[in-house]
Design a binder for these strands. Structure first.
Lengths: 158, 158
DNA sequence: GGCAAGCTACTCGGATACACGGTGTCCGAGTGCATGGGG
DNA sequence: CCCCATGCACTCGGACACCGTGTATCCGAGTAGCTTGCC
């Protein structure tokens, strides 16, 4: 899976601590990653409607929804695309013993297992929201960690 | 994920119907796929110990274990490698507000969610065995489907 | 007829090109804010 | 003092190269089985 997903998730978490737009440059400096490439991930989030972009001098990105209503799956699908990891090529319909198409109304057992596993994976990601991540961060890194991030984002004038 | 996984799984299913070695060329013709590339996947299965290769004139591949003791996850890991889909790059330890390494004993919440989802995915694949797939095929394509495959593999002298 | 040596043909296995998607970067179009002048 | 036109600096957005992994292929090493000659 794409590595930019991790960046996008971290950005969503820190964006919960502020209410004003934050530019991609600031987010990149905070995470020490490529500003240009991070911009691409943020664009993907913008296209998916998870964040709203504000242009102009004091522009940047803001979360459009409540953190509790944004799931990790939303971010993953926005960045990596909604496509499934496994795609059935219908091997059973090929070769000398091909199964006739009229008998292939249901997906083949192999595809069924893969779809089932993919669904389990997605459900695990859907069960966690950005708000849950923020709470975990507070529990792990101390309650004031998010406050420090917020202060840095709002004061630092890069 | 690699597309060769689908081929490998189909091969494992059809290999349950015979007890003599089947060459990669026959398996490729049966599925109408590239013989050379399929050979690579079978080599991966051989390295993982799921199948045993027999060289010589009447050589080929045989399953080493009972179909019920081979899980779909075994095949997936053999072909795609045991690596996880998501790799945490420890972003929290970078940038101006980096978390000190001594505070990073536990994985960060984001990585935790990803690992959890990955585990759920793996458990779903581990729950299904090749024998289960064979039974599903019998239920779907009729009880004699596997017999026809077995007959084709043993009679056809390509 | 039985047996052994040699040969053949077929197999696996790894080493070798090609292609596509992810990775990383850059520059142009657009917009809100700050400034300076006028009323 | 208030308002408006102007300029500017900063922003996003998409278009452009680079690299690694997956995809596809080929040829060489090795072996089991068949053939043939001999005892």
């Amino acid at each position: 899976m794409s590595g930019g997903v991790e960046w996008a998730l971290h950005c969503c978490v820190v964006l919960t601590s502020v209410e004003e737009p934050i530019s991609s440059a600031k987010l990149a400096e905070l995470h020490d990653v490529s500003s240009s490439y991070l911009a691409k991930q943020l664009q993907a989030l913008s296209r998916a409607g998870l964040v709203r972009s504000a242009e102009g001098k004091a522009g940047g990105y803001i979360l459009t929804r409540e953190p509790a209503s944004i799931t990790v799956l939303d971010v993953v699908e926005a960045v990596d695309g909604p496509g499934r990891a496994f795609t059935c090529t219908e091997i059973r319909q090929r070769g000398p013993l091909a199964t006739p198409p009229e008998s292939c109304t249901a997906p083949c057992p192999i595809a069924r297992v893969m779809i089932e596993a993919d669904t389990a994976w997605r459900e695990a990601l859907r069960a966690i929201s950005i708000a849950d991540l923020v709470q975990d961060v507070a529990s792990t890194s101390g309650p004031l960690a998010m406050g420090r991030v917020s202060a840095w984002l709002t004061t630092k004038q890069a």
